[in-house]
Design a protein around this nucleic acid. Sequence first.
DNA 1: AAATATTTTTAGTTTAATCTAAAAATTACA
DNA 2: TGTAATTTTTAGATTAAACTAAAAATATTT
Lengths: 217, 217
Amino acid sequence: MYTLAEENYLKTIFHLEQEYGKEVSTNAIAENMQTKASSVTDMVQKLADKGLLSYRKYKGARLSEEGTVAAIKIVRKHRLWEVFLVEKLNFHWDEVHHIAEQLEHVRSEELTNRLDKFLDFPDYDPHGDPIPDKNGNIKSAEKRLLSELDKGNNGILVGVRETSKEFLQFLDKRSIAIGSKIKVLGREFFDGSMVIQVKKEQFFISKKIAENLYIQI
Amino acid sequence: MYTLAEENYLKTIFHLEQEYGKEVSTNAIAENMQTKASSVTDMVQKLADKGLLSYRKYKGARLSEEGTVAAIKIVRKHRLWEVFLVEKLNFHWDEVHHIAEQLEHVRSEELTNRLDKFLDFPDYDPHGDPIPDKNGNIKSAEKRLLSELDKGNNGILVGVRETSKEFLQFLDKRSIAIGSKIKVLGREFFDGSMVIQVKKEQFFISKKIAENLYIQI
DNA sequence: AAATATTTTTAGTTTAATCTAAAAATTACA
DNA sequence: TGTAATTTTTAGATTAAACTAAAAATATTT
Ligand SMILES: [Mn+2]
Ligand SMILES: [Mn+2]
Ligand SMILES: [Mn+2]
Ligand SMILES: [Mn+2]
């Protein structure tokens, strides 16, 4: 149906739309995909010609219905494979992303749906991201960034925004995991750093860390 | 490491070498890959430059040690994924080949080895083909084509040479499967056709069918 | 051993996806 | 509001992998 490159663009644009809620700029796509702006312009024009997105020069791109459907299918596959890798093959949550980046492009609706069933229809992937169902519906749970919580607030860690090895290993080292109860003991307004409590332990964390943890109150 | 196209050429050349035991011709590769001879020449020259095979103009190609190792890795992945699809996702043996053609290109030695373990280190794939182990060793069981057996001989079906949907469904319809005990009741020397017995049933089969069934005496 | 047929290679194009460098448009700010 | 900085697009080139058509080598027949 779509080429590998096209699928990767669709997925990236989808994520950027979700994150910023507006038309996605050429540079934002380029940065995310580690490519050059000129390459992005080319591809975005091609995808527009194919009706997968609307594009206005200098203004940015926005996925069409068809483009969104295609992107969600890729995201669904990515997250299902991540669950498979962690649940069945005992991979660690910091190792699965780049393998799933390959598996997400395997074309077979039947495969995807059987995998879904084999995994017992999981709602979330190992990083707490929701898995679209076979019709493309995505469960959107209420969640906020830890960085937005005030002193005294507490909640459960339900997801991570970053999925790099470095960040996930940082959390592991401190036994912070999906499901952990986190309480904000202090918050520094100067730099956004925090002191949090997880179980019996207290940690000092920078704003950058707090901005990558999703909490459900 | 290698591109998708390179991997597919390596795999095809490997299979053709196995089948004919000599240098593989340009046309044989082209036919197998549904491409043109001129494309094959280009690629074979490229692979020769990279040291993955030796190639003499007009004479054909033969995989080098490095090329063989690479090809076996792909074959290993292909067959392991086929086992996964049949054993874990309940696919039928006639549906898995073209999905495995995609999965075989996923790059991660760790993934392959964990999948192997998850499947309990299978020796054969759903079509009876041996699965190379992590070091590239392939179990080669004694087996012969049914077409080579004489009247009165019998053995166990241990593999199929063809893996097309049409052929596998032909076998299904007659409840002929890996493990079936097959006895040759008659053999026509004019056209190579046979009458065989499987369980209580007798079938008339053409030479073409008999040439695609591997029997262990 | 010629003539003919087949196989294989070469030469020249095409398409997808990338890049660099330069031009054009937009945005920021003095 | 005009100039400078930034972003984006265009123009032109490159690479991988395919193709067609024609040339060259090899194999098969008379
Ligand atoms: Mn991921
Ligand atoms: Mn994930
Ligand atoms: Mn197969
Ligand atoms: Mn097989």
